[in-house]
Design a protein around this nucleic acid. Structure first.
Length: 392
DNA sequence: ATTCCACAGGAAACAGTGGTCC
DNA sequence: GGACCACTGTTTCCTGTGGAAT
C-alpha cells in the first residue's frame, strides 16, 4: 500500500511516479499518427480535403466495432483539417448521438458549434433546423459534422434529421454541410429512406478489429508518451494487448487497462507495471463497471434488481409478486407488469440479469430470470440508497 | 391437429415538466 | 397568458408465441 500522504508526495518529488503524460492514455488524445489505420486515415482525408478549397465533398460512413479506431481516425483527420484551414469559414462539429440522444439535442449541439444559441427545449425541430441552416447560409460556412454512434439516433428516432442534412444543399448555399457518420452496426442502413441512403453512402469505410500485434504497437507508442522509460515493459504491454485482444481487438479497452494498471502500480510505489497490476486492473475495471451501473439506476430498476436477488422462483409472475412485496416494505409506488417487463429487458441488456424466454407448454411462456452479479456486491451498493437501507 | 396458457413485446396514448414564442 | 413544443416515464391495449396437454 502507498503509506502516508507524506510518503506519497515524497515519492512523487523523487520522481518515482510512473506517469509523465496521463493524457496520452485518455479517450480524447489525438496521436501524431495512426500507423495501423493508415489506409482509412488517407481515405477519410481524401473525402474531406475538398472542404479546403470550398467545394462540396461527399458524405462518408465509417463502420466498425467498438475500439477499432473509427473515432480516432475522424478526430485525427479533422484536427489536421482545422490546422490546414487555419480558421476561415471551416467549422468542425462533433456530436456523439448517444450522449446528445434526441434529434433536438443533436441539432442544438450543431447550433452551438456554429454559434447559434438554441434553448434546451421549447422550439419545434423545424424551427431549430431553420435557424441552424440560416446561420450556415449567412456565414457561408463549410461545416463538417461528425455524428458518432449515428445508428443509435436512427434506431431511436428514425432518419428525419439525416434527411434534412442530406437534402440541405440548396438551403445552405453558398455554405454547405458534409456529414461523417460513425456506426458500430453494419445493418443500420437497412431502415433508411432510399434518398438518405443514396447520398449518405457515397463513401463507406470498414474498420476491422485490431490484431494483438497491432494492439501491441498502439500500446507501445502510447506508453512511450505516457510513462517514464522502463515503467511499462514489453511483457506488460504484451499482456495488456493479449487480454484486450481476446475481447474482439478493442483498443480503447487495451489503453484503459494499461492506464489503470499504471495507476495500481503507482499507488503501490512500484517502479514498473507487473502482471499482477494488470490482472488487478482488469478485475477493478469489471468491478467498477458493475458498481457504477447499479448506482446510476433509477430507483424502480434498483427495486426490481433487488427483488430478483431475493426471490427463488423462475418466472416473471413470481418476480412481479416479489417486487410488489418489496415496494410495500420500502414505501415505493408499484409499476405495472408491462413496465416491470420492460425494465427487466433493460437490466438484461446491461448484463446485470439474464432473462431468457422459456415456454412451459400449456402453462404459458415466461422468462427464466437469473442475477448475473454477486448478491453481496449488490447489497453493498444498494445499502447506500436510503430507500433500501432499512432492508440490510 | 388443435387448444390453451402466461406471458412477451409493439404501438399509441397520456401525464407531467420545463421551456419558447407571440 | 395561452398556445405550442420536446422529452421522459408510464399505462393501456393489443397481437403474437412455443410447446405441453388434449
Amino acid at each position: 500500500m502507498p503509506g502516508s500522504v507524506d510518503e506519497i508526495f515524497r515519492r512523487a518529488k523523487e520522481g518515482k511516479a510512473l506517469f509523465i503524460d496521463r493524457n496520452a492514455l485518455s479517450p480524447d488524445y489525438v496521436p501524431e499518427a495512426l500507423p495501423f489505420r493508415d489506409a482509412q486515415t488517407k481515405a477519410v482525408a481524401e473525402v474531406l480535403a475538398p472542404v479546403l478549397h470550398g467545394s462540396k465533398p461527399s458524405n462518408l460512413l465509417l463502420y466498425g466495432k467498438t475500439g477499432t479506431g473509427k473515432t480516432a481516425v475522424a478526430r485525427y483527420v479533422l484536427s489536421r483539417l482545422k490546422k490546414e484551414a487555419d480558421g476561415g469559414s471551416l467549422i468542425v462539429a462533433y456530436i456523439n448521438t448517444r450522449l446528445a440522444n434526441t434529434e433536438y439535442r443533436a441539432l442544438a449541439e450543431l447550433g452551438q458549434a456554429i454559434d447559434v444559441q438554441i434553448p434546451f427545449t421549447g422550439l419545434s425541430i423545424g424551427e431549430v433546423v431553420g435557424r441552424v441552416f440560416k446561420e450556415i447560409q449567412l456565414k457561408k460556412s463549410h461545416v463538417v459534422l461528425v455524428m458518432d454512434e449515428i445508428d443509435y439516433l436512427v434506431k431511436t428516432f428514425g432518419d428525419g434529421i439525416l434527411y434534412e442534412f442530406t437534402r440541405s444543399s440548396e438551403k445552405l448555399s453558398p455554405g454547405f454541410l458534409s456529414l461523417v457518420g460513425i456506426s458500430n452496426d453494419l445493418k443500420f442502413k437497412e431502415g433508411l429512406d432510399p434518398r438518405v441512403l443514396s447520398s449518405l453512402s457515397e463513401e463507406e469505410l470498414v474498420f476491422p478489429p485490431y490484431t494483438v500485434e497491432e494492439l501491441k504497437g498502439i500500446l507501445t507508442e502510447r506508453a512511450r508518451v505516457a510513462f517514464r522509460p522502463s515503467a511499462a515493459s514489453a511483457a506488460a504491454i504484451n499482456l495488456c494487448a493479449a487480454m484486450a485482444g481476446s475481447e474482439h481487438g478493442d483498443a480503447r479497452r487495451a489503453i484503459d487497462l494499461l492506464r489503470i494498471a499504471g495507476e495500481v502500480a503507482e499507488r503501490e510505489g512500484l517502479k514498473e507495471i507487473d502482471d499482477s497490476c494488470i490482472r488487478r486492473a482488469s478485475d477493478k475495471m469489471e468491478h467498477d463497471r458493475v458498481e457504477e451501473a447499479i448506482r446510476s439506476l433509477p430507483v424502480q430498476n434498483k427495486a426490481i434488481l433487488l427483488a430478483t436477488s431475493k426471490f427463488e422462483g423462475t418466472n416473471t409472475g413470481e418476480l412481479y409478486l416479489a417486487y410488489n412485496s418489496l415496494c410495500k416494505k420500502c414505501g415505493l409506488e408499484t409499476l405495472t407488469q408491462r413496465r416491470v417487463s420492460g425494465i427487466l429487458a433493460e437490466l438484461d441488456l446491461m448484463g446485470l440479469v439474464e432473462a431468457s424466454v422459456v415456454s412451459k407448454g400449456r402453462r404459458g411462456r415466461t422468462k427464466r430470470i437469473r442475477l448475473l452479479i454477486g448478491s453481496e456486491a449488490l447489497a453493498k451498493t444498494l445499502s447506500e440508497d436510503t430507500t433500501f437501507a432499512g432492508l440490510f
